[in-house]
Amino acid sequence: MTEMTLAAFAMVAFIGIATPGPTVLLALANGSRFGLGRALYGMAGALLSDLVLVGAVALGLGALLAASEFWFQVVKWLGVGYLAFLGVMLLRSRGSVDGALADAARQEAGSPRAIFLKSFLVAVTNPKGYLFFSAFLPQFIDPAAAQVPQYLALTCIFTAIDLLVMFAYAICGSRLAHVLRNAGALWLDRICGGALLALSASLAAYRRSTV
């Protein structure tokens, strides 16, 4: 695996990650609702999901979802339901900033464990992730060389980029929450909630034949 191959992988990965999706939208929402520090737990959940996705693809789960309509539908509808649930929760949010950051530690929805699990479950129940990695990673793997070191290198690059992008989104959310205050934070929650519902609908319409 050459440096040029790694650079090409990093560029393509950055484009894919930076394009607004469920995990970066959650980073934005977490930053605005709970602050940057608490949003880090969501980033940790998303990074763990990256490891699960790459590991699953390496073990052949991506190929299984590509071949099995039943398991593809199971994973897909789990993801659809969870994205829709999070979208509705954000739409129902009161969007209050004053006092919300201070009270977040006492709210179950804003606990580190809840924030971590939200981001992890959103990514790990998205069949697009498995199919994407199944089609994406092998293009950068040299079949004549040892597989494990190559997968580890690509995973490290992908997770590092993912962390930087989510961090940027969370900072934006945190800054916007303080600048816009209550009314603006309410609309930021509404925008993120609507976007998650739109992604849920998009995932519901997703078919394996489009891959």
Rank of each mutant, 00 (worst) to 15 (best):
L28N: 00
T23F: 03
A10D: 11
L40C: 09
A44G: 03
G21N: 08
M4Q: 14
G21S: 12
G42P: 03
A39T: 07
A13E: 09
A44T: 04
G37W: 06
T23L: 10
F34I: 02
L25G: 08
I15V: 13
A13G: 12
F14L: 15
A7G: 11
T19P: 07
F9L: 12
N30A: 12
L26S: 08
G35V: 02
G42L: 01
F34H: 09
Y41E: 05
A27L: 01
T19E: 10
A39C: 13
R33F: 03
M4L: 15
G31S: 07
G16Y: 06
A46G: 12
T19A: 11
R33W: 08
T5L: 15
A8I: 10
F14C: 11
G21Q: 02
F34Q: 01
T2P: 15
A44I: 01
L26W: 04
A18G: 13
F34M: 11
G45I: 00
L36E: 03
I17Q: 06
A7E: 14
A29D: 03
G45F: 00
L40R: 05
N30C: 06
F14A: 11
N30M: 06
Y41W: 15
L36K: 06
V24C: 05
V24W: 02
S32C: 14
A10N: 13
L25V: 04
A39H: 08
P22A: 10
L36D: 03
A13L: 01
G45R: 00
G21E: 05
G42H: 00
R38C: 02
A13K: 11
E3G: 15
A18Q: 09
A44V: 02
G42T: 00
M11D: 05
Y41K: 05
E3F: 14
F9M: 11
F34V: 02
I15Y: 14
M4S: 15
L26G: 01
A18T: 06
L28I: 00
L6A: 15
G35D: 06
T2L: 13
F14I: 02
Y41R: 03
R38Q: 06
A29F: 04
M4G: 12
G16V: 04
L26N: 01
M43T: 07
A7Q: 15
A8V: 13
G37S: 13
M43Q: 08
R38A: 05
T5H: 10
A44L: 09
A46I: 00
T19W: 10
T2C: 12
V12T: 10
T19S: 13
A46T: 00
Y41H: 15
T2I: 04
M43L: 06
G31M: 03
G21Y: 07
I15L: 11
A10S: 15
G42S: 04
P22K: 01
P22G: 07
T23N: 10
A46C: 08
M4W: 07
A13H: 10
